[in-house]
Amino acid sequence: KDKDLLKGLDQEQANEVIAVLQMHNIEANKIDSGKLGYSITVAEPDFTAAVYWIK
């Protein structure tokens, strides 16, 4: 199951987060929520590491 990592990002921010996570071998998903911006989700086992790397 995926957990929400970040919400309300613009496309550039979302792409930067995806890139950082991929560099650390964390699979992440970018979801277009329309006017609400983009959300990033990661698998539950990767959540703690993902939070660490996006600081």
Score class of each variant (00 low, 15 high):
N29G: 05
A43V: 04
I54H: 02
L36S: 11
W53K: 00
K35A: 13
I54A: 05
F47T: 02
D32W: 14
N25K: 07
I26E: 01
I18M: 11
D46T: 04
D2S: 13
L9Q: 00
E27W: 13
I40V: 09
A49C: 15
L5Y: 03
A14I: 04
D32V: 06
E44W: 10
K55E: 13
Y52F: 10
D4F: 15
D32F: 14
S39T: 15
F47M: 04
E16T: 11
K3A: 06
I26W: 02
L36M: 12
Y52I: 07
H24K: 04
D4E: 15
E27Y: 13
Y52H: 12
A14Y: 03
G8F: 10
T41M: 10
D2T: 14
Q11V: 11
Q11C: 14
K7I: 13
V51I: 12
H24Y: 08
K1R: 12
Q13D: 04
D10W: 04
A14N: 00
G37Q: 05
K1Q: 11
L21C: 03
A14W: 03
A43K: 13
N15H: 06
E16L: 14
K35L: 12
V17C: 08
I54M: 05
Q11T: 08
V20S: 04
D2V: 14
E44L: 10
L36Y: 12
E44H: 06
L5C: 07
L9A: 02
W53H: 06
I54K: 00
N15P: 01
K35P: 14
V42Q: 00
E12P: 05
I26M: 03
Q11P: 09
W53E: 02
Y52C: 13
N15E: 09
A28G: 05
D4H: 14
I54V: 08
L6M: 10
L5N: 01
A19R: 15
Q22D: 05
I40Y: 00
L21K: 00
L5G: 02
K35Q: 09
L5I: 06
W53D: 00
N25E: 05
F47L: 05
P45Q: 14
Q13G: 06
P45K: 15
I31A: 04
G34Y: 04
L9I: 08
S33D: 14
F47S: 01
N15F: 08
N25L: 06
I18F: 06
T48Y: 13
K7G: 10
G8S: 04
A43Y: 06
Q22A: 14
N25F: 08
D32C: 14
L36G: 12
G37L: 07
G37A: 03
Q22S: 10
A28W: 06
D4T: 15
L6Y: 06
A28L: 03
I18H: 03
D32P: 08
L21H: 01
L6W: 05
G34D: 04
I40F: 02
D4V: 15
T48W: 14
D2L: 14
E16F: 15
D2A: 13
P45T: 14
F47N: 00
M23L: 13
D10E: 05
T48N: 13
D46R: 03
Q22W: 10
Q13R: 11
A19W: 11
K30R: 08
K55D: 12
N15R: 07
I54Y: 05
W53L: 09
S39Y: 09
I31R: 07
V20N: 05
N29Q: 12
L36H: 12
E27L: 13
H24W: 05
D46C: 09
I31C: 06
G37N: 03
Q13N: 04
I40D: 00
Q11R: 12
D46E: 05
T48R: 12
L5H: 01
T48H: 13
Y38H: 03
N25R: 06
I31W: 09
N25Y: 07
G8N: 09
E12C: 15
V51N: 09
V51Q: 13
E27D: 10
A14K: 01
G37K: 06
G37I: 05
G37D: 03
N25D: 08
P45D: 14
L6T: 02
V17L: 10
I54W: 07
A43C: 07
P45W: 14
E44Y: 08
A19S: 08
I40L: 03
D2R: 15
K55F: 14
Q22M: 11
K35R: 10
I26Q: 00
S33G: 15
A49P: 03
E44T: 07
A50T: 03
L36D: 12
V42R: 00
L6R: 03
V42C: 05
V51G: 05
E12R: 12
L6F: 10
P45G: 14
I18G: 00
W53V: 09
I40M: 00
D4M: 15
E16R: 14
D2H: 15
Y38D: 01
